[in-house]
């Protein structure tokens, strides 16, 4: 019973540490929160896709050996492009406000009164030593700018860069498989396109939607 109580106390302490960490890290950085939860979303949806393949009895082991690394590659493209682009945008938004490049009249007055030098330098932080109402204004303004920039970054990465990269990857994979199949079956039917339906079972037909889906990545953005 004591062991159970100790374990419950430990779990409770860890949970409180986790909550306090979230409050401290994301409470004043909503843009950073959007980036991190976005990355977590991609990781979880990719993991779910891989898990679905692993536990699917209808997919032969040979195909699994191909599909699982392919899902990982697709996930890497999604996560990397999302993180790099969205994080860069968010960072630029934060830096513009922190360095004093982008200000409200109230913040400008504060900067002038405090005679803060090197406005616009990336090492400058106008919020250092800021308190009270001005700090409140700064945090709200920085939060808003940060959200706008991270949203712009996520639109660019999720809706433009990722689909383009994924289509290119899908087309490349299709060609590779087709070339491989054609080479293998060249003596029988040299001029016909083939796609793989089951391992070692080649059917002569044009490229199909199932092939496209297979190589265009099946990740559902959550």
């Amino acid at each position: 019973m004591t062991i159970l109580n100790n374990m419950a106390d430990l779990a409770s302490q860890k949970f409180m540490t986790f909550k306090n960490y979230l409050y401290k890290n994301y409470g004043e950085s909503p843009g950073k929160m959007l980036v991190h939860t976005g990355v977590l979303g991609w990781i979880l949806s990719s993991a779910a896709q891989v898990f679905a393949i692993v536990i699917n009895d209808k997919i032969p082991a040979k195909e699994k050996m191909f599909l699982i690394p392919q899902e990982f590659a697709d996930a890497a493209v999604n996560i990397l492009s999302f993180y790099v682009v969205t994080n860069s945008f968010t960072s630029v938004g934060n830096k513009l406000v922190k360095s004093g490049k982008l200000l409200t009249p109230k913040l400008k007055k504060y900067v002038d009164e405090k005679q803060i030098k090197d406005i616009g330098k990336i090492t400058t932080d106008i919020s250092s030593g800021m308190t009270g109402e001005v700090r409140d204004e700064f945090m709200k303004f920085k939060g808003g700018v940060s959200i706008i920039f991270s949203t712009l970054g996520s639109i660019l990465s999720c809706n433009i860069i990722t689909p383009l990269l994924r289509n290119q990857y899908a087309a490349k994979k299709q060609k590779e498989i087709m070339a491989m199949n054609e080479k293998k079956d060249a003596p029988q039917k040299p001029d016909t396109q083939k796609t793989l339906q089951k391992p070692n079972d080649f059917v002569y037909k044009p490229l199909s939607m199932s092939d496209y889906i297979k190589y265009s990545g099946s990740n559902m953005r959550i």
């Binding site: 909550k19 939860t37 979303g41």
Partner: peptide
């Protein structure tokens, strides 16, 4: 406070991501 509101958004989103899996 804004910070507390953002905290609730962050934790709610993390829980939502688990649900959405």
């Amino acid at each position: 406070s804004d910070a507390f509101m953002q905290y609730k958004n962050a934790l709610g989103t993390i829980v939502a991501l688990g649900v959405m899996t």
